[in-house]
Design a binder for these strands. Structure first.
Lengths: 249, 249
DNA sequence: GAAAACTCTGTACTGCGTACAAGGAGCGAA
DNA sequence: TTCGCTCCTTGTACGCAGTACAGAGTTTTC
């Protein structure tokens, strides 16, 4: 019973954990799952997730497009493998103390997302059950060993932190992507947009006093638009404060 | 100088604000931008963002595909119009008190995302400069009128809250989407995955003690996997606590 | 009227994921 | 050794996406 259909959880999990499978009879494969995943990551790093097409990866490996389907059930599974593989780049150590630990967890992920911005574009409907994603979760929980919280709270905190990092990172990454695709920097774009907006009576600052003031301040402070990195650090501080209050630590 | 090229900020902004434009000479248009946007939203609500194709919308409106390009420069701009339009569904009022105000802002957005899950899939590289998105921002800031914070802090808080809601909502929405696409509920999926995982030595709980324990607890508590709604409420509480601490309120 | 400007439409191009069938390589059994 | 099964590899092809382009028809302006 060798179910090879795409969308099968069994197959996906076995690929994630590198389960060898029974001895095969035909010609030796030219490649391996690892090769395909590595090529996928190479392409994604270079040209973004949209460039990760089966044809492009096959080209990269000097192989026909359809050969890839020998190693991977389909594109979706490949992306999941790439995701888990990338999680393997996260460190294992943790600094002393829950606050420093959680901060490190967040900062490491922040850096990972900037090293591989395409991670933020991958939509896996369900949690990835791969080894490195497990290790990531384990580490996130380990950072809170000293806190007296129940399991549900721990899970919620992990989710909260991951959401913060992803959200903020998406901000900076989306901007970069938009700049690349449109050939306009944030600055160019704003200089083109602001005058148009000024011509529209309904968009007059009087109607949006707070938005105009804060938007202008944030724009000036960071040169064009709000700064995701500042938002990230600020949000992290607030969340850690909130956790400290909850745990009485 | 009537730049109609897609990707032009001027055109997009004028569409967002419904700027009428000079009197036209040819035959009267059968439709309007509003019709197209409404059809887009109808399709997205019914069958998700992937179903929002130019052909499908044209069918919906009883019109040839290419006619849509008379009203809208391209698909990307259409999505941005749909986004701003949906933001128009958010209420304007605010309850008394910053804490209740921010909570309402978050809860309203949470509900909006569940009414229109496709909103979470739209990737606009830059902020949407439409009337309803402006109003949304203005209201978010208004909720903090009584707090003594500077503009940069206000902006960061808005971003933090929006990130929380989007992140948590993505959790529940992604699960629903995965269930629909695969024909498996979370429960089915887990029942298929768990045994496979159990067969893999490297995935033994001894190697991931905390992850196994917490994962099991969270799964049991909510029936299959972590509960995004609980994560949302929990995260909101922590963040509001953190803000209170910062503002000394 | 005639001409210009505009809407609408059908066709067609490129690029995507991948189903399918045919060709060739290597192993196990005779 | 040879047959035959199994598996890897490949080229072709299908359906669907966004949208460029050219022609036909309609309404306004001169």
């Amino acid at each position: 019973m060798d179910t090879e259909e795409p969308g099968d959880p069994r197959r996906t999990i076995e690929l994630l954990w590198g389960v060898p499978g029974p001895p095969r009879r035909g010609p030796k494969p030219k490649l391996s799952v690892e090769h395909v995943v590595a090529a996928g990551i190479r392409v994604a790093d270079a040209d973004g997730l949209d460039a990760v097409t089966m044809r492009r990866i096959a080209d990269e490996l000097g192989v026909a497009t359809m050969s890839l389907y020998t190693y991977v059930p389909g594109r979706e599974e490949l992306l999941e493998l790439m995701l888990d593989h990338a999680h393997g780049e996260l460190p294992g150590e943790l600094p002393e103390g829950w606050r420093a630990g959680l901060a490190a967890v967040a900062e490491d992920l922040w850096r990972l997302y900037h090293r591989h911005p395409w991670l933020l574009e991958i939509r896996v409907g369900r949690p990835t059950l791969g080894p490195h994603s497990f290790a990531k979760y384990e580490r996130e929980l380990a950072a809170m060993d000293e806190l007296d919280l129940d399991d549900v709270q721990l899970d919620a905190i992990v989710s909260l932190l991951n959401g913060l990092v992803a959200g903020a990172a998406r901000g900076s990454v989306d901007a970069t992507r938009a700049a690349r695709r449109s050939g306009m920097t944030d600055f160019d774009w704003w200089n083109r947009s602001a005058p148009v907006l000024a011509e529209i009576p309904a968009a007059n600052p009087v109607h949006f006093p707070r938005a105009s003031r804060v938007g202008a301040t944030a724009g000036q402070t960071y040169g064009g638009s709000s700064d995701p990195e500042h938002h990230f650090r600020f949000g992290l501080g607030r969340i850690l404060d909130g956790i400290g209050q909850l745990a009485g630590a």
